[in-house]
Design a binder for these strands. Structure first.
Lengths: 166, 166
DNA sequence: GCAGATGGTTTGTGTAGCACCAACCATTTA
DNA sequence: TAAATGGTTGGTGCTACACAAACCATCTGC
């Protein structure tokens, strides 16, 4: 395919120049399409897409506090409680009190959680084929790496911090 | 469905070596982070993130029917009506009756819509810096291209674009 | 021509996933 | 000991949808 990115031409195929190539809307679009397909694929596993997001984040931030998780997921702390209640009731995550500060809960994946996450990822194969069908396997791999790096990049510095200045 | 194991990696964290590298949850995670930041950035332009998604899709599928748009955005037709009402009231899109089938509305960006979309994309710069800060400019470019290609590839078959390439 | 299907619109109802508030306990810090 | 903090619970409200019903204009097949 000739996909001439960022060439200013007569036809308005895409953003006019390179300064406006924003991933945000595309991210949202594809995420929605993926979300809809994920729901049905995850139902047999007793999970919802947001649970999977949490598990995925937890795999990369094991031992995070609930506040840290709230910061990474960018959802209110009270909703994190409910989310973790679900996951803990299913035996997929574990809340232990932090030895350093016994007010804190240290959240981590259990064996069952790791296993379930892997199963869920397998179950998402069809959804991904559907939504990312236009990409070659190699490109999907590339995409995954980029998303993962971006995702990790926005967690560690402020994962457990209270400072909103990051 | 038989899924062979992927190639072995040396990465420590993340999916186990043979695990499936699914972009879905990451996509959703990053889309949410982007969404939250986009909202405030778009408010001064009188737009909401979903409007921007629609405009972005329209730029690539100009002359699509409302049903086609509903299919691409994967939202119910009745909600497309409301979405387009917003955008048309703002003068950003245009609904014309299709000459071939006068039941249809052919939707396209107006000049103002194209311009506003570009402005919005500029306004999203900060949000993107924030969410994709871990990626180099080059990688962001790469990401954009992948997302865009995936997004274009998942248009419903013969959705009714101007150029019926199929 | 006519019946039925189709594209779009309106209205109205329901729901999921959140935010946000207030009260509370356990614990840490000043 | 008082105040701040991490987490929990219960409650309210909002937004972005899905979904259904009724409707008009138009197209299609007989």
């Amino acid at each position: 395919m000739f996909l001439g990115p960022r060439r200013l031409g007569h036809m308005s195929a895409g953003p006019a120049d390179e300064s406006e190539r924003r991933s945000g809307p595309l991210l949202q679009h594809l995420a929605r399409r993926m979300l809809l397909r994920s729901e049905s694929a995850l139902t047999p596993l007793g999970l919802r897409p947001r649970h999977l997001v949490a598990l995925t984040v937890l795999r990369d931030s094991d031992g995070i506090s609930q506040q840290g998780l709230a910061g990474t997921l960018q959802i209110d702390g009270t909703n994190v409680v409910g989310l973790l209640n679900d996951l803990e009731a299913a035996g997929l995550v574990e809340r232990r009190r932090s030895p350093e500060d016994r007010r804190r809960h240290v959240v981590s994946l259990t064996m069952a959680g790791t296993k379930r996450l892997r199963e869920a990822e397998c179950a998402l194969a069809d959804a991904e084929d559907d939504v990312l069908g236009a990409l070659t396997p190699d490109e999907r791999d590339q995409l995954y790496d980029l998303l993962r790096r971006a995702s990790q990049g926005c967690a560690p510095p402020c994962a457990g911090a209270v400072e909103p200045a990051c």
